[in-house]
Simulated assay, not measured.
Amino acid sequence: MNDPALLTIGVTLLACLLGVTGLRLYADGAAQRAALVARLSDTGTPHTTGRRRRFRTLDRRLRRTRFGRRLELRISATGLDLTPGEFVAAMTAAVAALWAIGQALLSPFFGPLCGLLGIWAALGFLGWQRQKRIEKFINQLPELSRILANATQAGLALRMALSMAADEMEAPAGDELEKVAQQLAVGTSLDDALGELAERLPSRELVVLVTTLVLANKAGGTVVSSLRNLTETLEERKETRREVRTQLSQVSMTAYAVPVIGIGSLLLIDNMQPGALDRMTGSGLGQFAVVIAFALYVVGFAVIRRFSKIDV
């Protein structure tokens, strides 16, 4: 122990060992933190494909804005494997393409109108995907309620019942319940986790189920009988919604057919009399008439869609 060389070598080896151990612990912690952030920070769809994300800079800037956060929430409800940056980039490219096509096929005045049509179509696509996923989730609610009732009757806690339902059910219910289970695993309260679920996929049926689960978790009581009664009610509402949707399918098709007929008439006129649209939009009165016509088509589409929506 009195040899300075041996003492120096021993201290050096000990420092190297501690350094390597510290670096390994740091790397493991960083990897776990990165995995947790990737799983919880994206309220959008889980990135299970492992593909390389594009437009990361645009995505980061969008997430700092209110519009970006709202867009991220809408994308998360659709189940699409997209980031806000990727969606905005794709929408910008589609708007530019429609702008150029409108100017080339119709007239320069129709370029901006076609660009606005591209924005409306992109946002409408998100809304359609979201509604489609909500409908599919609603159809799974009776089965979800049945699984929760059986699990709680077997003695499992509500948190464990939700985790078991997430493993057994298919998408979208399985994916959404997996998010709820992950939030519960990191300390989020059951009320907040289920509240975010109801916010992502808003529907009367889900609100009733969430309210039943929250009240049962707070006050206790006969949660099994409540869930079984709710299962029967959800089954009846499922059949009623299917009948109503079948009866109103023709009205829904009419809402989409009206603007298509209008745009088709413009193309037909320009084909029969080349240059007619240029002459029509060459004056202020013609441009005003075109804008009013497009506005009336939009109002007609919205009114017909409103008539076809019946709250069940």
Rank of each mutant, 00 (worst) to 15 (best):
N139V: 08
Q103C: 13
Q153P: 03
A121E: 06
A104N: 01
G155V: 00
Q140R: 06
N150A: 15
I147F: 11
L98F: 14
A157W: 02
L158P: 08
P108R: 13
C114L: 13
A149D: 06
G127E: 11
L105S: 02
A151E: 08
L144W: 03
S163D: 10
Q153G: 15
S76G: 15
F137G: 12
P108W: 10
E170N: 11
G111L: 07
Q131N: 12
P84N: 03
G115K: 04
G174C: 07
L126T: 09
I101S: 05
C114G: 03
S76N: 10
P112L: 01
S107F: 03
A121V: 10
L117Q: 12
S163V: 05
I101D: 03
N139S: 13
I138N: 11
R159Y: 11
L141A: 12
E86F: 06
G155R: 00
G124Y: 07
A121P: 05
Q103I: 10
S145G: 15
E176Y: 00
F137K: 01
L80P: 08
A97L: 15
D81C: 02
L156I: 06
E170A: 15
R146M: 09
E143G: 07
L73N: 07
M160S: 14
A77T: 05
A104V: 04
I134D: 06
L113N: 11
F137H: 12
I147S: 09
G115W: 08
L82E: 08
S163N: 03
E86V: 06
F109D: 04
G174M: 03
A100F: 09
Q129S: 14
A90I: 01
F110R: 04
A157P: 04
I101H: 01
L82F: 08
A149M: 05
G115N: 04
L105A: 12
F137M: 12
A122V: 08
I147H: 09
E135F: 13
I101T: 09
A94F: 12
F87C: 05
T92W: 10
N139M: 06
I147M: 09
L98S: 02
Q131Y: 07
L148K: 01
L105G: 04
F125L: 12
L106G: 08
E72M: 05
L117W: 14
A94C: 04
G124S: 11
